[in-house]
Amino acid sequence: MLHACVYATILLGFFGIIFKENLVMKIIAMDVMSTGVIALFVLVAARTGVRTPIVGILPRDGYADPVPQAVILTAIVIGFSIQALMLVGVMKLARDNPTLETRAIEEEYR
């Protein structure tokens, strides 16, 4: 069930990238897609357990796998820096193309 939701998020984001006309909406759709990917990593990690993996007197089994979580932290940072970069670019583009319609921009700069 959770898996289905995660994959639905990824797909919806992808369709948003294709079908939304506005450039800002496309970027937000990409953000939705990357949220789905992040959720997938969390889900993969949590599949084996729910505890936080801290060394101590706690029982050794049933902890969530820390590796995908550590990895996805990197990916989150990369993802938001790319989005920030794209939004700055869009802000500059918006000065001369206030509607930010992808098709119009593409016609102009072909």
Partner: peptide, 14 residues
């Protein structure tokens, strides 16, 4: 920093 190169770059990154 021209609009055209900015658009090409954005498209690439996207």
């Amino acid at each position: 920093r021209q609009d055209r190169s900015l658009w090409v770059a954005l498209r690439y990154l996207f």
